[in-house]
Design a binder for these strands. Structure first.
Lengths: 330, 330
DNA sequence: TGCACGTTTGCTACCGGTAGCAAAATGTAT
DNA sequence: ATACATTTTGCTACCGGTAGCAAACGTGCA
C-alpha cells in the first residue's frame, strides 16, 4: 500500500490539499471544524507528512552530519550518546559518518553536503587542514564545526577542551607528587593540529624543571597500539633509565600501556611507573585500572556545539575547562 | 552564494537541464562532447546534484535508520563501526537514533518513516513487542529489522546470534570445568524477548545437573548496574552458600561484577567465584579482566542485515553461531 | 440590507530533481 | 540524394510538500 499524500487526504476530507497542510502546520489559519475533519481523514489513511518534500521546499533538513574516525576510543560512546540525545531534543537528527580508509573526509563532506544537512560536525577526527581549505568544500556548503579537537581553520570554529589549562593542571599535580622523569605517548602519526597536548606537556617540563620529555608514538589511538608502544619502550630502555610517569594522549592508549606495564613487565603502577590518561573513559573508574585522567566537560561542549548549529550562539571557537580526576595510577 | 542547480549549469553550458542531468547519470545517453561541456560548466559553478530532490523523485533515500538504546555497552562501538562502514560501502548512510526516556521507539520510527528511510534497524534495543504491533507503525512504512537480538514479531526479521547454541556451549564448558552452583545476572527489567539467554542457561543446569539457577537483576546494562547487583547479592548471601560461577548477560555487567567481587569482597576470580560475560567487548581481552566470554559473529551479522536491506537475501530471521572465548575468569 | 473588515480557503508558482515520450540530429545503406 | 535506423536532446508531467497572494466566506455594525 502506497503512502498517503496530502492530496489523498484532501479528497478523503473533501477539502483542498492546502487545508490539509494547514491542519498539520502549528499556528496556521484554519477553523477547528475543518482541522478536525482533516485529522480524522488523515488518521483513516494513516497520513504522515513527507519530511523529504518539506526539506526540499523549506531548504532545511534538520539533519546534522557527525563524522567520527576513532571507534577504538571507548570515550566516544557516551559522548555520542549525549550528542545524539541533545540534537534530538532540538528536533535534529544525526547522520553518523564513519571516516576510514575507504571513506575519507572529502567523501563524507561531499555526501553530507549533497544531502543538504544543516551542519557538519567533525567529531574528534584527524585531518589535514589543507583537506578543508583545498577542496573548496567550504563555499556554499553547510556550516562546519570541529568538536573535541582544535582547529586552526578560518571559518571552522572548534569546540574543545582547553589543552593548555588541562596540561598545566596535570603537570602541576605530577610535579607536586614528585615525578621527575616524564614521558608522553602520542597516538597515530600526530597531525599538526593534534599536537597540542604533547607540545604543552613538553613545554611544561622544560620550563619548570628544565627536563626533556621522553616521547613515544602509537600507531593508532587504541589500547592495542598503546600496549605495543609501551612494550617497545620498556624493552628498549634499561630499568634505571626509565621514565617515572607516562602521560598518554588518551585513555585508550593508557589502558593498553597499563596492561603491558603491569602484566608483561611486572611493574607496579604507580610505584614503578605512574600513568595518566585523558578523557575519563568508563574503564578508568574501575578498580581494575583506577586511572588518573582528565575529564572534558562533554555536556558543556555538546551544548555549545548545538547552540552554534542553531545560531543561538556566535559561531566562533570556544574552549572549556575540564577537571583532573585523581585515582591510583599517578 | 546559493547552490548551483542543474538549470544554472544548463544555461552556463548552453544546453537544457536534462542534458546536465544526463552528464551526471552513469550510462545515460549523451555524447562525449556535451558531457565534457557540462562537466566543465558544473565545475565552474561548483555544482553537485541535490540528493534530497533526487530522493523525492526516485522514492529512495539510501538512508538507513539505526536505533540504539544501550550506549553503556562498550561492545556497541565496534559493532556500530562495522555497521556504518558496511552501509557506507553500499552507498547507504546511517541515521543514528538514540532511544531513551525522552525519545521512544515510536518517536524514532515515526520520524525515520517520515524521512523516508530505506530501512530501520533496531540495533539491540529493548522494546515490548506490542509497541510494534499496536502502533500500526508497520504498514506502509520502511522495512524493519532487529539486529543482535531476538524478535518474535511477524514481519520483522531478526539477525542474531543463536542463544541456544551459545548458552549450551558455555554451559558445557563450565560443567567440564567443575562448576556446580551457577548464577545468572540479567540486565534491566528483562523484557520477554530478552529472556533468551537466561532461560536457556537455567534450562541447561536443570536438565544436566538438576540444579536451580540463582538469578539476580541489574537495573540497566552497565558496569555500574552490574557492580551494584553483585554487591547486593554478595552482601546478602553467606560465603558458604555462594554460587561458584556467575554468568552475566553481557560484558558490561561482568566488568562491574568482577570489580566488586575482587576489590570490595576480596575474592579471587576464578578461584572463589568464576565469571563469564557475553559479547567479547574490548576490555575483556585486557589482562586487567581476562574475561571468559562469548563472541558474536558481528561481521556476518552485519553482512546479513545489509543483504536483507538491499534485498539480496530473503528477509527472514537468521541465527549465527558465535564462539566461546576462554580466558582466565572461568 | 449593505458594506467593511478579518478570517478561512484555494490558487499559482516553486523547491531540484526523475521518467519516459517526442522531436531533432546524426549515421548508414542503397 | 534519399530512406531509414539509431542516437541524442528537449519536452511535459510528476515526486510531495511550502510560500504568499487572491478569492470566498463570515461577522459586526450602520
Amino acid at each position: 500500500m502506497k503512502r498517503a499524500t496530502a492530496q489523498n487526504v484532501a479528497i478523503e476530507a473533501g477539502v483542498s490539499k492546502w487545508t490539509v497542510i494547514r491542519a498539520f502546520t502549528p499556528g496556521a489559519s484554519i477553523t477547528e471544524a475543518s482541522k478536525a475533519k482533516v485529522l480524522e481523514a488523515a488518521e483513516r489513511l494513516n497520513y504522515r507528512p513527507n519530511l523529504l518534500a518539506r526539506s526540499l521546499a523549506t531548504n532545511s533538513t534538520h539533519q546534522v552530519a557527525v563524522l567520527v574516525d576513532d571507534f577504538a576510543n571507548p570515550h566516544k560512546l557516551p559522548f555520542l550518546e549525549k550528542l545524539t540525545a541533545s540534537l534530538q531534543a532540538e528536533g535534529l537528527v544525526t547522520m553518523l559518518i564513519n571516516i576510514n580508509q575507504h571513506y575519507s573526509h572529502v567523501h563524507a563532506i561531499l555526501n553530507a553536503d549533497q544531502r543538504q544537512v544543516d551542519a557538519i560536525v567533525l567529531f574528534g577526527t584527524a585531518f589535514r587542514d589543507e583537506m578543508l581549505t583545498d577542496h573548496k568544500l567550504g563555499r556554499g556548503g553547510p556550516p562546519m564545526f570541529v568538536l573535541a579537537r582544535d582547529s586552526q581553520i578560518e571559518g571552522v570554529p572548534a569546540i574543545s577542551c582547553d589543552a593548555t589549562v588541562a596540561i598545566a593542571e596535570i603537570g602541576k599535580y605530577l610535579l607536586k607528587k614528585g615525578y621527575r622523569r616524564p614521558g608522553f605517548m602520542a597516538g597515530a602519526r600526530t597531525l599538526s593540529t593534534a599536537l597540542g597536548r604533547r607540545r604543552n606537556f613538553k613545554e611544561f617540563w622544560r620550563t619548570t624543571l628544565g627536563v626533556e620529555l621522553v616521547e613515544m608514538s602509537a600507531e593508532r589511538y587504541s589500547a592495542e597500539a598503546g600496549a605495543q608502544a609501551a612494550r617497545d619502550y620498556l624493552s628498549q630502555v634499561a630499568p634505571e633509565d626509565r621514565i617515572d610517569v607516562l602521560m598518554c594522549e588518551n585513555d585508550a592508549l593508557a589502558f593498553g600501556a597499563m596492561d603491558v606495564v603491569r602484566s608483561e613487565f611486572g611493574l607496579r603502577v604507580p610505584n614503578d611507573l605512574a600513568i595518566v590518561g585523558f578523557d575519563n573513559a568508563a574503564p578508568a573508574a574501575s578498580p581494575a585500572y583506577g586511572l588518573t585522567t582528565y575529564e572534558q566537560p562533554t555536556d558543556q561542549m555538546v551544548n555549545a556545539a548545538i547552540d552554534m548549529i542553531l545560531e543561538r550562539a556566535p559561531r566562533e571557537t570556544v574552549n572549556f575547562q575540564g577537571k583532573l580526576v585523581v585515582r591510583d595510577s599517578a
